[in-house]
Amino acid sequence: MPTENPPTPPPATADPTVSQPAQPYVLRLYVTGVTPRSTHAIANIKTICEEHLQGRYRLEVIDLYQQPQLAHGEQIVAAPTLIKELPLPLRRIIGDLSSTERVLVGLDLRKGG
């Protein structure tokens, strides 16, 4: 859905799909070891970020096997889990991120599915 005139136009990068403009994205991807699913997820998120959030995202990939104590603090249940910490609201995107559309919805880069 294309955007209309935003009320207070921010310094625009005219990406038509971005509903909320140029906010830095803080993303963390939690994986469990080097499994095909983990590798997939990492590749997928990197592609998506490069395509849609180029230059304004920070992605951290964390292997829970290396830092298991983080699973409790971050309330991780499923793996892989991508947490969109910023911009709010917090979102948990689970799965291998192969469904790009849904990842974009989850990242609030596209309105609901």
């Binding site: 793996a79 995107i93 799965g95 291998d96 469904s99």
Partner: peptide
């Protein structure tokens, strides 16, 4: 967004 497990 795809296959997942309860690894966490």
């Amino acid at each position: 967004t795809g296959e997942f497990d309860l690894g966490g």
